[in-house]
Amino acid sequence: MRRRPLLTALCALAYLFMLGPILLVVAVAFSGGDTIHFPPEGLSLKWFGKALSQHSFTSALGTSVLVATGATLLALLVGVPLALAVQRGRLPGRRVIEALCLSPIVVPELVVGLALYQQLMVGLRVTALGTLMIGHAVLLIPYAVRVTGASLAMADPMLEEAARGLGAGPVTAFFRVTLPVLAPGILSAGLLSFITSFNNVPLSLLLTGPGTTTLPVEMLHYVEFSFDPVVAAVSTLLLALTVAVAVVTERLIGFNKVFGR
């Protein structure tokens, strides 16, 4: 490859812009001072201690994990059959069904959140936790359908037909042949869904309240009202967790296969 100094410089600039600021947060998290100050004043671990002992953060973390797990399972449970029907069903109006499955992406999440708040929480008195799970699941269905749909499109439908021809019922053929073929796709969709739900702010924002708050929303509200570096410490912990997930993913399936393509 020819050397291209200009291209290299532009790329370095872009990566610095994307990743540099995140590293500053890590530096501030170890600060000994009481405000966000750069360079940090002194060195200490006190903000990590405060982050881990603050009840509002730990209970919000619990809610986030619960909602992300529930919504991911729900989205996969309805999304995989949707993908199967769309890809293999030879249904009339396939395009319309596909468009319906992907439609939650088109409407801004904040708007969906407002609608869910008005209609489900206030109108039908669904609990905050229930509404959060339903809303997140709806948001994740498009990903579940697309990612599993993509691996279905690549799988050979003859495999299932061979299984059926050899005497397997439709259910056996699904669990013994189709599902194992789809497993990597479903795993990717699940991982992506969990992370998307866990990080979500705009959809959760109007559905959370005292008692039921997700971690990103709690962090956001905290930053609005106080300037101490606790959130930097929480951010650093989340960063470490995300790096761990990325490394494990790389070992097991390949990072770019799941997230980058």
Binding site: N199, V245, G260
Partner: peptide, 13 residues
């Protein structure tokens, strides 16, 4: 991978 990684991190962070 380096350019995808930030997408996995919360927008708040």
């Amino acid at each position: 991978a380096l350019s995808t990684f930030p997408l996995l991190l919360s927008t708040v962070v």
